[in-house]
Each structure stands twice: as C-alpha cells, then as structure tokens.
Design a protein around this nucleic acid. Structure first.
Length: 260
DNA sequence: CTGCAGGCCCTTA
DNA sequence: TAAGGGCCTGCA
C-alpha cells in the first residue's frame, strides 16, 4: 500500500471526467482502476491517496498512466493568466484532473461506442465486452472471434458494425495502429477518420486520450454548449495562446460544466 | 407513447 | 459545404 500526497490529483474528479469507462466506484472513497491488464485500487483520503500496488508497479505503470510527470499547476497558472473568466473558474473547480494516457486501441473501441450514447450505457457496453473476454479488454482478434450471439449480447447497436469493420481493417493490415504513434496529431486525426465509424469527434478523443497529443480538442455536446452559452459561439484557443494544451483545457471545461 | 443521449454515414441540393 | 434523415438501445 502506497500513501501518496500528489499535487493536482483527485481520483474522484478523474473518475468523473469521462475519459475512462473502466474505473469502478467500489466504495465511498475507493475506485478500482483498470487499464490494459493492470488493476489498482485507489482510496481517496483527506490529504493523500492510498494506492494498492507496489512502488515498482506505481513507478513503471501508474505514474505514466496518470500523467504525473507533467506539472499541472503550471498549466493551471498559465490558463489563469489568460484572464478568461470561465476558464479561471473551471481550473479552480477541477484542479485535481489529469489527462490519462490510455491505450490507443481501447480508446478507439470506447469512443466509437460513446457516439450518440450516454455514460451508463457506454460503461455497460465496455463491461459486457470485457466480461465476454475473461475480464480483459478484447483485442481486435478477440472481437472477431466472438460469435454473433455473443457480440450482440453486448448491445452495441449500430456501432457493432463499425467495431467489426475496424477490427478487421487492423487485422488485415489495411489500418496500422503502430504507424499512428509516429504521426502528428493532425495526421493521426485524418488517418483515424479513414476508418468507417470514426468521425471528427471520436478521432479527436483517440488522439488525445490514446496518443496523448495534448493539442487535440474534442468538441462534444457539452463543449459545444459551453461555447454557445459562454463564448457566443466563438472559442479560439489560439487567441488565448493555449493551442498546444487544448485537450487539457477541454477537460477542465467539460468537468466544470457538468458538475458545477 | 415520444424524445433523446459525449456522432457518423449517406444522400441531396 | 451545408443540411437533414436514419440509426441500436435504454431510460425518462
């Protein structure tokens, strides 16, 4: 058990930030976090968090997963300096948020499922997929190995066809996941959009959460609502000088709008 | 019963 | 290039 006083880290805020659908709220102050084949229980205390893992596991995996090498306080200060009223309140409100470094394939699957969908059902679908695959997140081959009865029990709806075609493209080699990592965020965005079932919004989520390009700025309905309500329909990261960290800004905006 | 939820695809004009 | 309909499912 590790007792860690981490700056700008609040597992409760992170679990509610809509990036990850495999964080389970198992008791009042505890979250069970699943990523790839790793699992850790994290307990939120007054001034620190308890991690149920070894120092080695923390250093070799979780520290990177939670983006702990980045100085979020510096980012918060930078955002505050823009003098933007809404962003000022947003960073104060969600100062424990982190942009997670998740697996790119898992992000493709998760955010294809997320389209025209709500969080409880997204979570349910992701859980169903993992249960069908012995608790592990299914790889492309695992998806294609499922019988039609099995995959239909996941209740993906029309997204099922998207996922099967994407898994097939990856296995056939017509889409190369490893190339993706070497592309700029714009190139990766375009390449992802060549997949059937991935449009602008999902591509941006994959680039941000799966490829860890902090300039990607996914615009979901919440962000669009914020821009319409608080910015008269016009929100420009460039003019704020925040274009290189749009993805982090987006997290603060989303979280503030949802829970304030 | 209708409407809609963290979009995308396809067809029109 | 923009606008609009259809789409699985589940819940209010």
């Amino acid at each position: 058990m590790l007792e860690l006083a981490l700056k700008n880290f609040d597992i409760e805020q992170i679990a509610n930030s809509g990036q990850c659908f495999r964080m389970y709220h198992t008791s009042e102050d505890t979250w069970e976090v699943h990523a790839l084949d790793e699992v850790v229980k994290i307990q939120k205390k007054e001034n620190f968090h308890l991690f149920d893992c070894s120092e080695n596991e923390f250093a070799s995996f979780w520290s990177n997963y939670f983006d702990l090498n980045r100085d979020y306080q510096k980012i918060i200060e930078r955002i505050k300096k823009t003098q933007d009223d809404y962003l000022y309140k947003a960073v104060n409100f969600g100062s424990g948020l982190r942009v997670l470094k998740q697996d790119v394939w898992e992000m493709i699957v998760t955010f294809v499922i997320s389209q025209q969908n709500n969080i409880p059902r997204i979570t349910k679908c992701v859980n169903n997929l993992c249960s069908l695959n012995k608790g592990k997140f299914p790889q492309p081959q695992d998806l294609l190995n499922m019988s039609s009865t099995e995959i239909e029990s996941v209740k993906l709806g029309y997204r099922q066809d998207y996922l099967i075609k994407i898994a097939r493209a990856i296995l056939e080699g017509s889409f190369n996941l490893s190339i993706l990592r070497n592309l700029s965020s714009h190139e990766a965005h375009c390449y992802l959009k060549s997949l059937y079932g991935i449009g602008d919004k999902v591509a941006n989520c994959v680039v941000l959460f799966g490829l860890h390009k902090m300039d990607a700025f996914p615009k979901d309905v919440w962000i669009k609502r914020i821009i319409n309500t608080h910015y008269a329909g016009e929100f420009c990261l460039q003019s704020l000088g925040l274009e290189d960290i749009g993805g982090i800004v987006q997290q603060y905006m989303y979280f503030y709008e949802r829970y304030r």
